[in-house]
Simulated scan of single mutants.
Amino acid sequence: MLKGYKYRLHPTATQAEFLIKTIGCTRFIYNKLLEDRIAIHEEAMASGGPRRKPPTPASYKPLFPFLCEADSLALANAKLHLDTAFAKFFAGTAGFPVFKSKRKARASYTTNNQHGTIRIEEDRVRLPKVGFIRFTQHRGFDGKIRSATVSMTKTGKFFVSLLIEQADEPWVPAEHKVGIDLGLEHFATTTNDDLVTEKIANPRNLRQAEARLKQAQRALARKKPGSKNREKARILLAKKHEKVRNRRHDFLHKLSRRIVDENQVVVVETLKPREMMKDRRLAKSIGDAGWGEFVRQLEYKCKFYGRTLIKADPWFASTQVCSACGENDGKKDLQTREWTCAACGTHHDRDVNASLNLLRLAD
């Protein structure tokens, strides 16, 4: 089993400069390889002949000497990431690969552990071509380091994510089950096998910080482009966005871990947030909730701790079917929060009824 551990890095000024250069080199290689692949495809289509072999990252070094300063494994991983992007495109699970922007793309690079080039000694972690960097190891691990991904936030903070190879956790037999219905009024409504229902409030982190974000964005817009004050205003705005993201992830991590700790079988509905966000009235609230990230966390934490996760089919009518008699009363709009079954007369809370129907999928 592979598991990631993320830690905060505290590089010196020289080390930070090298990390930024390596991130830039990997982004450059990714864009150059993508550009060449597009050109090779267009040439083959025009000539009708066989396609020439795409270049490798090493073939660019004579043309661009600055690439020699970067970690060669980081450049090789950029090519692997592009290969993965094309594989997903041809499989129909993702769109066509796009060029990485310096301003918008995630600033990161990945390097592999070859013959102990990545290792931890006391409060420092060693990375290839960088050496030992001081870091905060807030939790330990047992296993072999496979690779390391170095990332930089918009506020200039550095993190390293170590991919660790560990033994698989034993499967845990089912003792407690829970059904989880996701929503906006309440982030989640859960019902366990003892029929105990809990409604978890939606923190609405973005909505609460909206006024402060708007003020910071206006302050940034008034600054002169290229000035030091504009850079200060940009960092201030990035810090506010980072705070919103950290609060959201903190809430999702604590909730998902509590659910996995308390239950051995977890049933959650499968939503399609991207399609749901096409409704402009709900798009911001749906994005703020983070349903997709919550389900992703449940999925890998269930795998790590030997639990069973059941994803309900997107077309499963959890809100339409009566949990008492099984009668389907038809589709109900979002404004209908309570309803009475026409067949058996049972009065339902919409979210509680949905969580009960999801819970039954665990049987």
Rank of each mutant, 00 (worst) to 15 (best):
D36I: 13
Q166Y: 00
A70K: 14
G140D: 12
S47W: 00
T117V: 08
N112W: 05
F135I: 08
H115S: 08
S59V: 11
K102L: 05
F86N: 06
F66P: 02
D71E: 12
L67P: 08
A94W: 12
G49L: 00
H41W: 01
A78T: 12
L80C: 11
K61Q: 15
A167Y: 07
H81T: 10
R146E: 13
K129D: 06
A58W: 11
Q137S: 14
K154M: 11
I38W: 01
K157G: 01
A85N: 10
R134Q: 13
G140Y: 11
T26V: 05
T26S: 13
N112F: 14
K53N: 11
P54D: 02
E165S: 08
K79Y: 03
K100I: 04
D71H: 13
G143D: 08
T136K: 13
H41V: 00
T111I: 09
E43W: 00
A87N: 04
K104D: 03
F135Q: 09
I118E: 06
I23L: 05
V160M: 01
A78C: 14
E43R: 00
T93K: 15
F86C: 11
K79G: 04
A44V: 00
S151N: 07
P65D: 04
D123L: 13
T110V: 12
D123V: 02
R106S: 12
D36G: 01
F28R: 07
A85S: 10
A91F: 04
T149S: 02
Q114A: 11
P62G: 12
G24M: 14
G95Y: 01
I133N: 04
P57C: 08
K79V: 09
T155M: 07
V160G: 02
F89E: 05
L80T: 09
I23E: 07
K79P: 10
I38Q: 05
A46H: 02
R124M: 14
F141N: 11
T117Q: 06
P50S: 03
D36A: 06
A94M: 12
L73H: 14
V160Y: 03
N112S: 10
G48S: 12
P50I: 00
I23C: 02
A58H: 15
T110Y: 07
Q137F: 10
T155E: 15
L33C: 05
I145R: 05
E165N: 09
E43A: 00
M152T: 09
N113R: 15
S147P: 05
K154I: 01
G48A: 12
T26P: 06
K88P: 01
Q114T: 14
T26Q: 12
E122A: 13
H81Q: 13
D71S: 15
K88H: 14
D36T: 14
R126W: 01
F159R: 00
R51W: 00
F66L: 11
I38K: 13
C68P: 00
R103F: 12
A148P: 02
T110H: 05
I164W: 09
T111R: 10
D83V: 04
S59L: 15
P54C: 03
T149M: 10
S47N: 07
T153Q: 09
E165T: 02
C25W: 07
G95N: 08
K129N: 14
G48V: 02
P54N: 03
P54M: 00
S59Q: 14
K144M: 12
E69W: 14
R27E: 01
C68L: 15
L75T: 10
Y60W: 13
S147L: 05
